[in-house]
Nucleic acid binder design. Sequence first.
DNA 1: AATTCACGCAACCGCCCAGGC
DNA 2: TGCCTGGGCGGTTGCGTGAAT
Length: 283
Amino acid sequence: MGRPPCCDNGGVGVKKGPWKPEEDIILVSYIQQHGPGNWRSVPENTGLMRCSKSCRLRWTNYLRPGIKRGNFTPHEEGIIIHLQALLGNKWAAIASYLPQRTDNDIKNYWNTHLKKKVKRLQQQQQPQTDHHHSFHTTNSNAAAAAATSCPNYYNPSSSSSSSTHIHSSHESMQSMEPYPSNEATTNTIPKLFQFQTWMKPSPASASAANYNGAMAMQEFQDDQEVAAAAAMASSIDACKDHTCAVIGDDKSSSLEMMMAAKMGHGEAGFLINLAEFALVIAV
DNA sequence: AATTCACGCAACCGCCCAGGC
DNA sequence: TGCCTGGGCGGTTGCGTGAAT
């Protein structure tokens, strides 16, 4: 069985490869009129010789307003490292904490920069390999370091204990710097248009409060945070399996709660203290 | 100046999931 | 209830570009 490819004409007439500026303009102007969604109709109605997926990706990863490209700050690096340790390669989930970044961008940045960086930092911080013996101390120290360096990582008053903190794209667009300064051709495209009337929250969007929480996370201070994040990441790696065995099946949720607790959370903090208590007993 | 190499990033591929019928 | 379809996601590829030789 198996599904046919999204471009089920067998690829005949479907253009691949880099997008041209004129194609971008066509796509953007169409979305300006109709809004994102119903991607299958986009190539049909615009005459673009692109498959619907390609159109969607081009929009979400490149043309969508509010996207910031390149130059990841230490704040963002710290967030990515933390969340990657928590959630694994759930780039879309990680991207939801960084509304200005796309999952593709984060994924690329992780693969090309941060993976090596974290590995190096973890090697510096964990020279010994006695896992069980060093676990508790390492965890505490790393957590303390991270908590000290970034007390507002999560916004205690706005985050929920849900495992999916998705920002509201509508709120995001209004509160973020709309068009970062890039000279790439494609970055000039969104500047040609205003996208406010039709901007609607994505189905996966959560509350603006979660977006505020995400933005609060960007209040990281300096390069030390990257090291702290790496320390946290290593501690998370160390305790991941233990935690899940104790707490339950929802690994990402449980770990996220732990993170939230370490940063000074409310209810989640209470729950996670219980979880950590159980964890210590288990270890 | 020419060639090779490494890296970064845009885009594609294939699988999965949710919703509609 | 099961099938079909569109949309979403993570992994991977391949091209462009700059550095090194």
